[in-house]
Design a binder for these strands. Structure first.
Lengths: 219, 219
DNA sequence: AAACTTTTTTAAGTTTACTTAAATATTTAT
DNA sequence: ATAAATATTTAAGTAAACTTAAAAAAGTTT
């Protein structure tokens, strides 16, 4: 199975997990930077390989086989991120970029070796869960989006759910890092803006950012 | 530049460095497991990209640009081998196989990080020299092929120059490892067979193997 | 509900990296 | 030196993964 196929299946899986939940070809095409026509073509092709169910004009639905493939690629991606993060001094964005390529050239054996070496971690440096070799995911159910956090409470950052360079740079500059502690000092109307205290600094976040930062309340 | 191109250029470089020195399309084709016609096609294509000089029926010659590309790929391959060897308990053959894929998906930045992490090593676990970022290679000029070694003398293994699974398995079983010491106990007619002492065992090697094992004389 | 916009699909075409088969050149053996 | 064997090249064709343009369906607005 090719890189194009792995990325396609992964994009469907990821879009399926998001709020919008739109897995129609056009959305997948946008995600992958290819034309809508190419996405439709690929969808038909993958249907014959039993990786997804294709019905004209309907959202694409991964089969069990397709889901398994997506999770295998995601597992490899996150294991690479965890390994590169541990070994090298590189920005999260650079690490993400490297993992995006390495994930497709990694045997199951190597993935196991990486996992073992890291002590079979359940989360990568963004706090994204690492599926195990059977495709099972541990999700920390207690974590909430920072936009839903409460004023005056203290939280631990459990996930930075993004691939965006600017976001990572902002995080790096402001101490927003997996495992760090913050206090919500003020939530503005409709949680459109959130003021937080972190590393003795006060910072103001808009909803684009607070919606992709996940936290667990400290007790 | 594609994986196919990187592998093509690498195959020419490697064949050029070997005794036979035959870089005609057919030889490269055999190395890569593609048809002669495909190799001729690719050669013409790469000539337009200034990676090699192509003249009908003549051996292929890499340009400076082509040589640089080959060395960059080889550098990444050997850095990966060194890293995987250090971190994981995997056979040299498995490590080679993984590196064969990873080498094409490694940014120069990541290569530098790996190199740094390993202390900028000059040799990989087979004893193959690792080109530096400028494509310069350190070669240990004092090393000779085991088939040219002298009876009764002691040597240190400096290189196991092969990609072959059976060879690596044989090496692993018999203590033939980069850095290990052996004594040549007998050279048979025309060096066709060599008897050596290693780890208190006597083993007999044919020329297929002694010609790809390189050693340095101990003083 | 009709009109407009957007999305999806179909159709036709491109590029890369191959393939096989046949023609041609080179190399080897006698 | 010529014939036979081998290797290289040319030609034609294929599959994967795209593209653009046009047609068709779906969704949105008034």
């Amino acid at each position: 199975m090719s890189v194009a196929i792995e990325n396609f299946v992964k994009a469907i899986y990821k879009n399926g997990k998001r709020n919008n939940n739109d897995t129609k070809p056009g959305n997948i095409a946008k995600e992958l930077g290819i034309s809508n026509a190419a996405a439709t073509d690929m969808a038909k092709n993958l249907a014959t390989k039993d990786l997804l169910k294709y019905q004209k004009y309907k959202p694409l639905e991964l089969t069990d086989k397709g889901t398994k493939m997506a999770l295998s690629v995601i597992r490899k991606h996150r294991l690479w991120e965890a390994l590169l993060f541990k070994l090298f001094d590189m920005s999260l964005h650079d690490i993400h970029r490297e993992a995006e390529l390495l994930e497709h050239q990694t045997s199951d054996l190597l993935a196991e070796k990486i996992s073992e070496y890291l002590g079979n971690p359940k989360f990568d440096p963004h706090g994204d869960p690492i599926p195990n070799a059977n495709g099972e995911i541990t999700t920390s159910d207690t974590s909430i989006s920072l936009s839903n956090a409460n004023e005056g409470k203290s939280y631990t950052i459990s996930r930075l759910m993004s691939d965006d360079k600017e976001f990572f740079e902002f995080c790096a500059q402001n101490g927003l890092k997996y495992g760090n502690t913050l206090v919500v000092s003020k939530q503005f109307t409709n949680n459109k803006m959130t003021q937080i205290l972190i590393n003795n600094n006060t910072i103001l976040l808009n909803q684009d950012f607070t919606s992709i930062i996940y936290v667990n309340e400290n007790n």
